[in-house]
């Protein structure tokens, strides 16, 4: 465990010692701020109309859920550039020789890198706490859906990071890693779009595979085991494949 944390700490330091972390967090804050303002303006005008008609408004459903779903789209673009360097850079600079000749198992290295990338991702999400906090200050949204929404975002990010690690472990080239990772993320995102044109079984499978479908419930305050199983097994499978990839690489030389 100490080894895992040592690697994770090194990864986080690498993000924060270079401009990477600050650029990501800064631009993420900019984008999220824009989404927040846009959705908030829309929400206030809508709630004004609704209250004139006497209908109740729900901050959680009409503002926070869309905010989270928008965040997940931004994450889709940001995460590939966080994970692209994890293995590719070590291979390119030769530091992989240090890691692979240290008394570490492949899984310890992979978990360390996973935790490192997740820490930066969590730091990104932490920015949004400020905006959500404003809503709690000025309004009275429910706490539970907000918490589960963050949980959902973290789990979804975990899946993406595990895929990103796998792809980064397959190449020395960071640009290739980023592009392929982005393509795979996007595919996982939209994989259910064709489900309505396929047979009933394929429809179920495709819908289940889509990463977004599982996020929806979380943002509404529902933690369904089915979604947890999906995310956790997705992550475990991604990390397992990464371990296989690292081991294969070693045999190939």
């Amino acid at each position: 465990m100490r080894n895992v944390l040592a690697i994770a700490h090194k990864e986080v330091k690498a993000y924060f010692d270079s401009p990477i972390a600050y650029v990501f967090i800064g631009f993420f804050a900019l984008l999220f701020g824009y989404f927040f303002v846009a959705l908030l303006s829309f929400f206030t005008s809508q709630s004004m109309q609704m209250s004139m008609m006497g209908a109740p408004v729900n901050v959680n459903q009409q503002l926070i859920t869309p905010l989270f779903l928008n965040t997940s789209v931004v994450v889709l673009f940001v995460l590939p550039s966080i994970t692209m360097r994890t293995y590719a850079e070590e291979k390119r600079s030769g530091t992989i020789e240090l890691l692979l000749t240290s008394p570490l198992t492949d899984m310890q290295i992979i978990l360390g890198k996973f935790i490192g990338a997740m820490t930066l991702y969590a730091a990104l999400l932490a920015v949004t706490v400020v905006h959500i906090g404003v809503l709690f200050w000025k309004g009275n949204p429910e706490v539970l859906p907000v918490l589960t929404g963050y949980l959902g975002l973290l789990l979804m990010g975990g899946c993406f990071v595990s895929v990103g690690l796998l792809i980064s472990s397959l190449t020395k080239n960071q640009i290739v890693a980023a592009m392929v990772t982005f393509a795979v993320f996007l595919l996982l995102w939209v994989i259910d779009w064709i489900s309505q044109f396929t047979g009933p079984l394929a429809q179920q499978v495709l819908t289940y595979l889509s990463v977004t479908q599982h996020l929806d419930d979380f943002t509404r305050g529902v933690v369904d085991t089915k979604h947890l199983v999906y995310y956790v097994s997705f992550m475990a499978f991604g990390l397992f494949l990464t371990a296989r990839s690292v081991d294969t690489e070693r045999w190939r030389g």
Binding site: G94, T95, T101, S102
Partner: peptide, 21 residues
């Protein structure tokens, strides 16, 4: 491998340094 690596120090051809550290 773990036991063997614990007892081995290795300087590769290119020193494995992290430039930002």
């Amino acid at each position: 491998p773990i036991e063997a690596k614990r007892r081995t120090g290795y300087l590769p051809e290119t020193p494995p340094l992290y430039p930002d550290m």
